[in-house]
């Protein structure tokens, strides 16, 4: 079913437009990089602030929630630019091992982040569980980024 979806994308006018353009992929990829920097920064500071490891915010949960909206916007930007990059050659990405790994890791990272958010109740943060959960989520997001780099090298 995914195979059909990717094939349909490959046959679409959007995909043809991206493939034929001399600048589209470049611009899209640059946007992806900028969003990556922002998303990573938000994750780092939010995560470290939440666990009180590097930062002392008076209200840890409030700090996380305040960064959350920016983080979600950055993630939306990453997803959108990512989908457009795939459009440059959908079948190539479909079969690409590093791309598949990245998607799997992305799913796990999202789940881990959801678990962290579930555990946040104003004022009631359990230290050990949260530190472990936050660290796991951050590591998974890092793995997503590394897998993304592998797409270019293989």
């Amino acid at each position: 079913m995914l195979h059909t979806l990717f094939q349909a994308y490959a046959a679409s006018p959007l995909s043809h437009a991206i493939r034929g353009s001399s600048w589209a992929f470049a611009i899209i990829e640059m946007a992806h990089l900028m969003m990556l920097a922002l998303f990573g920064g938000v994750l780092l500071i939010g995560g470290l602030g939440l666990t009180g490891t590097a930062f002392q915010f008076p209200d840890r949960t409030g700090a996380w929630l305040s960064l959350r909206r920016t983080g979600l916007w950055a993630l939306a930007g990453l997803v959108l630019s990512g989908l457009l990059m795939i459009g440059s050659n959908p079948m190539k990405y479909y079969f690409h091992t590093a791309f598949r790994a990245k998607m799997v890791l992305l799913a796990f990272a999202v789940i881990a982040s959801a678990i962290v958010e579930r555990g946040i109740r104003p004022g009631a943060v359990r230290p050990i569980l949260t530190n472990f959960a936050v660290a796991t989520a951050l590591l998974l997001w890092f793995a997503v980024a590394v897998a993304g780099r592998m797409i270019g090298f293989f």
Partner: peptide
Amino acid sequence: SWAHHSFAAEFDG
């Protein structure tokens, strides 16, 4: 001249 590099930019598929 962006036309370098990115496959679509420089080469004809």
